[in-house]
């Protein structure tokens, strides 16, 4: 199996590479690239994302043909794709970080700043928080409810169709921290930084 981590020159993806390499050892052929030909031949894609919504979308658009290739992979060919952090957020129609920015529009919804309730909640939301599983998701196989995952973000994905939500976490409100819609998977938390339990999420994705 060929799995591609999309390297689109946005933010630090070393940790994603390290953890996927660890889990993939000897089982999966892992590529880290923005080469469109290679992406097209992949069986699965991982779309990481760090920095702002706008900077990530801008970086994707910088690489000619990348957005269309990803779209074809995810929505026409319906092959498994995992978005992490801003990688997940970009599934939305629109994001409001820095400036109003059009997202990929794969899962209808918007990305807005977490309501900090007048300073009651510190932002970014940094650290370990419990996930509350809302529906069965393939990437949560053997993951118990209320497991701790590592978060670092100030914006949240608010999907229109709530049935895509596979887990939430409690910070100011019930924040969407994981989605599953057909072949699309996304986590707001960082499985690559969430210790053994996070590696299990990665393993589940690779085993799909």
């Amino acid at each position: 199996m060929n799995v591609t981590i999309v390297d689109y020159q946005s933010g630090n993806i070393s940790s994603v590479i390290n953890s996927f390499t660890e889990v993939a050892k000897g089982k999966v052929n892992l590529e880290v690239t923005s080469d469109i030909k290679k992406i097209k031949c992949s069986d699965k894609i991982v779309l990481p994302g760090q920095g702002s919504f706008k900077s990530c979308v801008d970086s994707l658009n910088q690489i000619k043909g990348l957005v269309d290739t990803l779209k074809e992979f995810a929505t026409t060919n319906k092959k498994p794709l995992l978005g992490i952090c801003v990688g997940l957020q970009m599934f939305a129609d629109v994001g409001y970080e820095e400036a109003e920015t059009k997202g990929l529009g794969w899962i209808s919804g918007r990305v807005s700043k977490i309501d900090n309730q007048k300073g009651k909640f510190k932002l970014p939301h940094i650290g370990w928080n419990e996930i509350e599983i809302q529906k069965e998701s393939k990437i949560f196989k053997d993951i118990t409810n209320k497991s701790h995952m590592y978060f670092v973000h100030s914006y949240e994905f608010i999907p229109k169709d709530k049935s895509v939500i596979s887990a939430t976490t409690d910070y100011s409100s019930k924040i969407v921290c994981s989605v599953e819609k057909d072949n699309l998977f996304g986590t707001q938390f960082h499985p690559e930084k969430s210790d053994k339990i996070g590696l299990k999420v990665i393993d589940n994705f690779l085993k799909l």
């Binding site: 390290n18 660890e22 590592y150 053994k196």
Partner: peptide, 8 residues
């Protein structure tokens, strides 16, 4: 270290 520790 980053190849062995999967916490921040």
């Amino acid at each position: 270290t980053a190849k062995e520790c999967f916490v921040p």
